[in-house]
Each structure stands twice: as structure tokens, then as C-alpha cells.
Write a protein that binds this DNA or RNA. Structure first.
Lengths: 139, 139
DNA sequence: CTGCATCCTTTGGGATACTG
DNA sequence: CAGTATCCCAAAGGATGCAG
């Protein structure tokens, strides 16, 4: 009973990808949630994909596709700090006044872009809007 | 200033995919989190990808790649119910005793598999383990 | 076996005000 | 402009026990 679980450790091959996962112990799906889980992290990657942006810019960008409410600076700060510490983002501070800080995708953040592409591709079909329509009326 | 934001509404094309997103209002990344966010949903899709499984089987499967602790039935029940209501899963109840219920991927759930593949592909590089190593000691 | 009821703890997210 | 501090609320997750 090999190939029993894509997420289990052991000498086996992923049914989804055909890749050997024997060297991996933690389920990528779970790790993915721990790394970019939460309301904003994925969206931040999405926004920074176009290029470096400043703290305030990111905050404003998050409002656009996020339907409505602005992100409070505390939350945004925490997200950016966490993602920077995980090595997903790069933070560049300019010694000017008023202060200027630019965030950009670090290699580890860029490595997530193929996943993001697939999510956008999925979203382009309207699937996500269909699902959210029925489950609850807009959150 | 078209192409300003992959996640914004309006007549534009995704920079990530080249797809027209003008008919979409909600950012796929945000919707993705709302739909499969949380600790188990993605993993459940992963597990059911191989075929229908029963309540208890799913619970046991989740332990394997999830590092350690078992899922309490209350949580698993809530996740499965939610995912079924969103149309991601199909629930088939057999009129036998003891009770037997099989969950399987519905079309809407299968539509998420390409994303899952990309996540596994990303995980196969070991990226997720690297990231989680540095940020916190396993948790 | 499947799943609900209760209760509790932890985490995430938000409002507001304030500083370098 | 780029954050931090404080306080608060809601949601997610977990332990335990019970029921069809």
C-alpha cells in the first residue's frame, strides 16, 4: 500500500504531480497554510508581484480586490514583518525623511508565484465567486 | 494605468496568467483563503484526491502528513459539512449499521486540484520545510 | 461509526491613538 | 510615512462527553 497518501512521509511519489516526495516530511498543503494563511499574505504576494511597493501603497492595493475595508497598519505591519522574517519578502529602507520603505518579493516569495498563477487561473473561471455566492451572502 | 492590479475589478488582464479578468470582481487569492482557509480543508482535498473516503479514514489520514495530533471529530465534521455545502465535496450516506458515510470530490473540489498540484510541486523542492524551520521551531 | 453539544483556549483581525 | 501600543472582538481550533 504505497502511494497511500500524498502527504505522508516515506518513499513514495505524489499522485498529483508524479514527483518523488520521499525526502519531504511535512505535507505541503499544511505548510502552505501556515506560511501564507490568513487574510492578506497571499494577496500581498499578488500585489508585490508587479514590483516593489511601499508600505502605504500595499495597504491601498489590498483594499481594491479585497472588497471594501482598509487594512489597519497594525495588521499590515505584522504581516509584512512575518513574511520578511520567513524570507518571502525583502525590505529596503531608504534613509530619507519622511521615511520610505520598499517591500519586494524575495526568492522564496517568488517561488510561490506558480501557485498564485494557478489560483488566478482557477479564479478566472468564476469558480470562487460561484462558491462564495451560495455558501454565504458575501461574508 | 491598466494592468495595475491582478486583483482589481475592471477591464484588464492578469500579469500572472495573461488571462482576461474583467468579469471577475473578487480577488481569487482572497477567495481562495475564504474557501479553503483553515488548517484542514486543503489537506482534505489532498486526501480525497485518491478517491472516496469515510469520515474516520479522513480523520486518520489527516494525522499522517499533519505532524502529530489527531483531528477532533467536531472539527472534522464542521470542515466536511462546510466543504460539502460549498459544493466542494460530495457526501454519500449508506443506510447500514453501523453508519457509513463516504466523502468524495465534487466537480468544484476537483477544480482546485491544479492548485494543489502546484503546491505539492513547490513542496517537493523542500521550500516549505526551509521556511518553517527558520520562522519557528516546528510549533 | 458518524457526528452533535458544551465549554474553553488560542489566534487572527480590527479600532484608535500615538511616536520617530 | 512607517510603523507601535493598547484594548477588544470574532473566529478557529481543541477536549470531552454523549447520541442516533
Amino acid at each position: 500500500m504505497a502511494l497511500d497518501d500524498d502527504t505522508r512521509r516515506g518513499p513514495e511519489v505524489s499522485l498529483l504531480t508524479g514527483l518523488d516526495m520521499s525526502h519531504i516530511t511535512l505535507c505541503p498543503a499544511i505548510a502552505f497554510n501556515k506560511i501564507v494563511g490568513g487574510r492578506y499574505k497571499l494577496h500581498i504576494l499578488c500585489v508585490l508581484h508587479r514590483g516593489p511597493q511601499r508600505f502605504g501603497e500595499i495597504g491601498r492595493s489590498l483594499v481594491k480586490g479585497g472588497l471594501g475595508k482598509p487594512v489597519t497598519p497594525r495588521i499590515l505591519s505584522r504581516e509584512l514583518k512575518g513574511m520578511t522574517e520567513m524570507g518571502l519578502l525583502h525590505r529596503k529602507e531608504y534613509p530619507v525623511v519622511p521615511k520610505k520603505v520598499e517591500y519586494s518579493l524575495a526568492p522564496r516569495g517568488k517561488a510561490l508565484l506558480p501557485i498564485l498563477s494557478e489560483i488566478v487561473r482557477w479564479g478566472a473561471t468564476g469558480a470562487h465567486e460561484d462558491i462564495l455566492e451560495i455558501s454565504q451572502t458575501g461574508q
